[in-house]
Nucleic acid binder design. Sequence first.
DNA 1: CTTGCAATGACTGAT
DNA 2: TCATTGCAAG
Length: 755
Amino acid sequence: MQYLETLNPQQLAAVKQTEGPVMVIAGAGSGKTRVLTYRIAYLIENGVDPFNILALTFTNKAAREMKSRIAEIIGNSEAKNLSMGTFHSVFSRILRHHSDKIGYPTNFTIYDTQDSRSLIKTIVKELKLDDKAYKPNLVHGRISSAKNNLISAAAYEANSDIVYEDRMSGKPRLFEIYKQYEKRCFNAGAMDFDDLLFKTNVLLRDHPDVLHFYQHRFKYILVDEYQDTNYSQYLIVKKLADVFNNICVVGDDAQSIYSFRGANIENILNFKNDYPENKVFKLEQNYRSTQTIVNAANSVIANNKDQIKKTVWTSNDTGNKIKVIRTLTDGEEGRIIAESIYETRINNQAENKDFAILYRTNAQSRSFEESLRKLNIPYKIYGGLSFYQRKEIKDLLAYFRLTANPKDEEALKRIINYPKRGIGKTTIDKLIVLADKFNVSIWDVIENPSEYPSGLNGGTLNKIGQFVTSIKSYQVLLEKNDAYDVAQHIAKNSGILKELYDDKSPEGVSRYENIQALLAGIKEFSESVEGDEIALLSDFMVDVALLTDADTDNDEDNDVVTLMTIHASKGLEFPYVFIVGLEENLFPSQMALNSRTELEEERRLFYVALTRAERKATLSFAMSRYRWGNLVTSEPSRFIEEIDSDHLEMAAASASKGRSLKQKSFENRAFGKPKKQPLFTNKNLKRVSAEDKVKSGKAASSLNLKVGNNVMHEKFGKGKVVGLEGDPAIKATVFFPKVGNKQLLLKFARLELID
DNA sequence: CTTGCAATGACTGAT
DNA sequence: TCATTGCAAG
């Protein structure tokens, strides 16, 4: 058990205390993942069957990585039997196993947020309610938090406090929407994200035999990021651990950032009451960051009232000061940071993957994308619209979904008229009303038109009939054929493939490519099945709804700069971290300014962001930024002021390398009201300085390009110059067969002439 | 029923 | 800014 020697005394103690309730309070960067990993390995080496271990992580990626780490220690065959994953993925599997007990088909669909909102929208319309008062995301948020607190639609209606609250906020009929939503999901054989936890609770509550089985199966339970569990999750864990009491939770109250998802910081604060014989271990030594970063983070979080007392410290070097950059606009913020990455990369022999740009909202990614692209710095954006949320992907998946579960209302609505087959809105509305009237699914209605007289004309009925026939023909294939073959067949036969192929616009081409990528993914899945078993499409569909960008990460060409929200960065670390958009009303968000608790959560979010950095953190804010297309002025975030000033180095964006690369420093917090704005806007100076950084030999501006020249680009491949701007040319429009037209600044794009 | 254009409102965060 | 929605005309 050599690996144990790498642990410090507290870590070791936490690993060895295998029996009874254990809480590990793990400060940022204190080696919590290591403790969890080794604890599991240690359990197994001491004779615990991996089959009896349940480990719940925050992302599927974290689970995969931990599993492979454990496999290295104890061998793959053992590690395979571990139950490990997110709450949602682990319990969705268990729910499928027992779906009949709670009245769901085994192939139940998982509605993602889009599906949920679309269904709510439909319901609001049907109930003829004002869609301004009942905005889908608001209503969904309300329903979601009810579910996370295990309040069913019936309980919601019966709860006078809640109903009163809704009435006061001008939404007296919200309970009706919830009721209808619950019914419609059930009739569609669909669960939303919250249902995966809610129904697990129902299953364990109403079926003692099932509860008994899992209580005895999961003798050892581990929960990561316990501070971000909600009541529904809390109760599942509590029930399962009730027999053996071997529960180990790991978390850090200072990093609780998901209360909007119902996360309840009380869970970690109340652990001691829930399990009186608990043992608590505190991991306070930070191995990740410099002293400057650790101390700065501590000084920020000290402003919060609600917290468990602990002292995070490090024996690492002092390191660089945290740089604070002020820029005029969000566009300039993007440029300065991209340039800073470029320079740092060269000066410190760093790689792209050593850098992360973290922001509060997804919408901020834009300016960074543009400027990184101009400097030819490869990057990847996480979050936002993930692959599986793109329209074309969801369309094809909807065919698969409907084939596997024809009751799936959202899937049906999506594709009954896509590609166009002349079944319009009025027809669909009629079908929905009819289905609701008889309390069946839309599929039931269109499958048996004679039983449910719709009053539609013959032509329409005929078109619907054809649609039903084609879906039925797919169903025949589903359970007997290879996933890839079925997927390919559906893609072709449904007309989706042709529809996208015929669209030759750049977007159309990329949609077609996405569909091909999905099919390739299914092919890979079907080839990964061992032996002579057949990979089924329905198996592929099982967790598609639960996948995120991080899960689809491949290991190839991953030397890229990371762009993500701070929420998504939880648990990750990077040598160089840029925390951007530090402005009042953005970070902290304006929605959080109403209450202390909300503001404290924003502050914890900032704490999480800072503690992602290993070597150097850089903060930035813009004095004005585009929001919904118009320029809004902004003030620096209060969080900057909350950092002990000893750790900060103030700098304004400097345009000229010649004048002061180190950038003008301010003795104190002079930001906010500059007397005048010198230098910073001088674009000419800027251009010179930027040009210096690109190896001049490669600068394409010296190529003397002409329209019609064939050129080679590092990333986009071969292309043809179709337009030039400026004299001498500074900007070129180049057509690349792979990606379409691109506008390139010649001083950055390292084009090579090839004819 | 479909198409095309004008008007509109969205930006927290994510399994 | 951008994607979705509503409306008029074919």
